[in-house]
Design a protein around this nucleic acid. Sequence first.
DNA 1: CGGCGTTTTGAGTGCTTTCAAGACCGGTGG
DNA 2: CCACCGGTCTTGAAAGCACTCAAAACGCCG
Lengths: 246, 246
Amino acid sequence: MNPLDATRLSHALQVDEVCATCGSRVAGMCKPMDPASLDEIAAESERVTLPARSIVFREGDNASRVFSLINGIAKLTRLLPDGKQQVVGFRFPGDVLGYTGRREYPFDAELLTGATLCRLDRPKMDKLLTRYPALERRLLDLCVQELTATQEQLVTVGRRPAEARVAAFLVSLVEARRRRGKVERLLEMPMTRADIADFLGLTLETVSRSFTAFRKRGWLREPEHQKVELLDLAAISALADGTNEN
Amino acid sequence: MNPLDATRLSHALQVDEVCATCGSRVAGMCKPMDPASLDEIAAESERVTLPARSIVFREGDNASRVFSLINGIAKLTRLLPDGKQQVVGFRFPGDVLGYTGRREYPFDAELLTGATLCRLDRPKMDKLLTRYPALERRLLDLCVQELTATQEQLVTVGRRPAEARVAAFLVSLVEARRRRGKVERLLEMPMTRADIADFLGLTLETVSRSFTAFRKRGWLREPEHQKVELLDLAAISALADGTNEN
DNA sequence: CGGCGTTTTGAGTGCTTTCAAGACCGGTGG
DNA sequence: CCACCGGTCTTGAAAGCACTCAAAACGCCG
């Protein structure tokens, strides 16, 4: 089976599994909705499938749509005047993209993998929020969660040495996977060293050196492209927390 | 008029001005509410006044209350295992403190100045949110705004050199003041060098050196304790953006 | 097989930190 | 009223960690 077929197959399974009505089985935006409401939401929304590296929207675009990521992984980035970029977060299945109080999106959203998304026009979204208080509450909860995660990231970037940041990133991957109820030993990691560096406020060389160091210590393996296996999560967590000796 | 009297006077004015019913004239949580609803909210909430350096709540405390800052300035901090702290944000009049999806507060909230707050029990808060959709929407908007601000801060901490971070901090002070509709030349800045350093992911010495440099360039003055006057906001903004020559 | 993007590794530089000491300021008690 | 004290701020010198620049190895895709 070549990679393309594998992708198509897993994609088909995902669609059958979660999104006939926008995701009744995932932990996404629509989690608390009953079947009847889901039907209405499904009627208002469109499902779109995009290949890896697609731009979902760009910083400064009119924020006229809201997306719910059904499957696939996205990165959110802000561009600085000097050309450097900062990754403000990665998004996983179940996460909402592009809901903002502003008229324009405050960051780019780019797919790291092929992905399926639910797309809603902003006015329709606002109507739905008014009509279904549970939906609005859910969105508020997701927003608060995201805020807490971003604050956590601020601590990581602001106060931890390079290797601890990389360790924290790996731990966050594990947690994102656990939230989605998966338990495979092999983690999907479609981000490049540069992506990770831009997330952690480091250079790609420093990230590479950290991975090399972890590998030499027997903490992890990368048996195939864009996959990691964490062999000593305890050690990695300890380094991330700064709970190591020294 | 001595400084103490000035403080008392402005404090009295603030209370008269904004909080008979929890803040009809401020840009706070209750901004979109009509007078009748405000009465009910006021009935459910208590107003408390606390001196500078009070702890409003601590990381790990049961998140049983939500606060709205009426006047005064607070800092939110997370403590790391190694004893260092990261300031995740400062809060100004109109901001909400302690609304979280978790059972426990994810950070400490400490007052930098004397302050007046609206205090609401969490169950009452939840009832109000259900009863007044406009209130819930407002909270969602505030949350999204905060999220965007925190992402902005992530860019600052992750990708900018020391002086640019300090410059960005000063710009954010100006913007916080503008949101509150004030236009005084003299900014209130009750945070110490250490607070600023913990916010920007720097050491207090580096922050001090940056202030000294700005002073020498004629960009700012500190005519009295805990006050700054920005003499060349354009230059400061340019440095913050990285829009300077070099 | 060749080309291109990603990753790795090395060497040297530099910015920020660390460590240290002194100055400043406000509050307090003699 | 003034001296003292603690906390904050400033300044200097040295060290260290991550960055920059550079080149080679790797792996994927056409």
